[in-house]
Structure formats: structure tokens, C-alpha cells
């Protein structure tokens, strides 16, 4: 039961079906990679899991530890343990990282209780050090004027602070140079453990050299065509997505 369970999920955007029967289970404690060709479905899956109102779920279920995720509001999903690291995180002018994370943690304590400020800052600085972030970051506005690498680091910092049960990392490697990639991977690896299930969505094998997954799934045409151990990623890199498509149980049509 302790798993993020996506069952036969169909998603449409603007009347067009983008995800067509996706089934995937991520047990807590494991790291799964979902690989897909560049440009297919963009961030659709991540947005739907997070609860974005513009995406329409046509069919299927998403259960988090047995609970129907799709019935919950975006903020409720997060408070119950889902975290989404976005490919293009929003900029929030005038809201500092410190205030933002504080509000996010405050929303997780029972009503009427106050977050302990000293503990909060101690934890924040500890996690920032882990990610090689300068303390001055806390007084900068969320993602405003951040470089690509800084944005991704800030996403992982949030992951570290919010301690979710499941984290979906959407194209976390995109736009990162090798040093930034290593730092981010180090941060993610340090959070791995029995209490966290991770789903990495990526189209490059590169990231998986640094965050080594337990399982790899290949998605083409909106559904999974192959699943396997970590070696599958290398094989995919070598043989390409066409090869993966040929291995599908039933024909897959790509747009």
C-alpha cells in the first residue's frame, strides 16, 4: 500500500490525449526513472499529479498510499506528502525563499501552533549547505532572477525541507551544466531512503549516471513500452526510442 500508484491514466490537454493508459507504481523507498523522448507530453504528467486545473484526466486513477490523489486540491496533495520539482518553477516577486518555505512548513503544523523559528532556520541552513547554497539565498525572492541551476537547486532545497513521502522530479537535469548536475544529484541522493519514493522524469540518460534508479520505464506515445532495471537506461541510450517502441506489447502511435 505504501506506494504511488498510477493506473491506466489518460490525460487530455486542449482536447488532445497526451497520456494514454499510463500504469506505474513507485513504492516508497525506491527510485524510478520515467524516460521519454524529448518533447513528448512535456510536463503533462507532473502537472496532473500536482493538480494543475488546466489538465483534464479522462480516465484512470492515481493513488498515494491507497488514497485517491485526483480528488484532492493541489495544496492538500502536497500536505499529504507529494512533492513536485518542476521543470520551469514559477517566479514569485517579493516573496523571499525564507518566508515561502516557512509558510509551506507552517501549513503542515496543526492549526494554532507556530513553527519554531530557530529550529526552522537551523534546518534551512543545514539543507542549504548540503546543496552548496549561500545563506544570502534565503532573502532572495523565490526563483526571481535565478539562473537555471539556481532554480533547480531551489527546488531540491524545497524537497529537502518539506520531507515528502513521494517526490516527482520533472526534467530536473535540463539546463544544468555538469557541476550543477552533480550538486543537485548529490542533494537528491542524500535524501534517498526508506521513507521517500522518487519518480524521475527525464529524456537523458545522463542524470541517471548520478542518481542511479532502481527501475527504469520508457514512455512512448503516452504509455509505458518497456520497464526494467537500471541497465535499461543504457540500452535505451544505445538503441534509441524506436527500439523501445518496437518492444511494445501492442502498437504505439506517436504524433
Amino acid at each position: 500500500m505504501n506506494e504511488l500508484n498510477i493506473e491506466n491514466l489518460h490525460i487530455a490537454v486542449g482536447g488532445q490525449e497526451i497520456v494514454r493508459g499510463l500504469t506505474l507504481r513507485v513504492p516508497r523507498g525506491e527510485v524510478h526513472a520515467l524516460m521519454r523522448p524529448n518533447g513528448s507530453g512535456k510536463s503533462t504528467l507532473a502537472k496532473v499529479l500536482a493538480g494543475h486545473p488546466d489538465y483534464q484526466v479522462i480516465a484512470g486513477k492515481v493513488l498515494m498510499d491507497g488514497e485517491n490523489l485526483l480528488e484532492l486540491e493541489p495544496d492538500e496533495r502536497a500536505r499529504r506528502g507529494l512533492f513536485m520539482a518542476f521543470q520551469y518553477p514559477s517566479e514569485i516577486p517579493g516573496v523571499t525563499i525564507a518566508n515561502f518555505l516557512r509558510a509551506a512548513l507552517q501549513s503542515r503544523v496543526p492549526e494554532g501552533e507556530e513553527l519554531e523559528a530557530t529550529d526552522y532556520y537551523a534546518k534551512l541552513y543545514e539543507k542549504m549547505e548540503l546543496l552548496g547554497m549561500d545563506r544570502s539565498f534565503t532573502s532572495r525572492a523565490v526563483n526571481e532572477g535565478f539562473s537555471g541551476g539556481e532554480k533547480k537547486r531551489a527546488e531540491i532545497l524545497q524537497l529537502a525541507m518539506l520531507e515528502p513521502k513521494y517526490a516527482v522530479l520533472d526534467e530536473t537535469d535540463s539546463g544544468l551544466d555538469i557541476d550543477a548536475l552533480k550538486t543537485v544529484a548529490h542533494g537528491v541522493n542524500s535524501l534517498r531512503g526508506p521513507d521517500l519514493g522518487i519518480l524521475l522524469i527525464t529524456h537523458y540518460q545522463r542524470l541517471l549516471n548520478y542518481i542511479v534508479p532502481d527501475h527504469v520505464h520508457v514512455m512512448v506515445g503516452g504509455r509505458i513500452v518497456r520497464s526494467g532495471r537500471k541497465e535499461l537506461a543504457l540500452e535505451l541510450e544505445e538503441r534509441g526510442y524506436d527500439w523501445a517502441r518496437e518492444g511494445a506489447v501492442e502498437p504505439v502511435y506517436t504524433r
Partner: peptide
């Protein structure tokens, strides 16, 4: 912006207040 804040667990009224004060 509002959606992003909500995906961090922040309820709508608090998220709105953050955006406005920002």
C-alpha cells in the same frame, strides 16, 4: 504563481496573501 505556492502545501488564502505582500 498561485498554483506553484499551492503545490508546496500552502492553502489558497495564505498563498494569495504571500503574492500580495510580495
Amino acid at each position: 504563481e498561485l498554483f506553484y505556492l499551492r503545490t508546496r502545501g500552502i492553502p489558497v488564502p495564505v498563498a494569495q496573501r504571500l503574492v500580495v505582500t510580495g
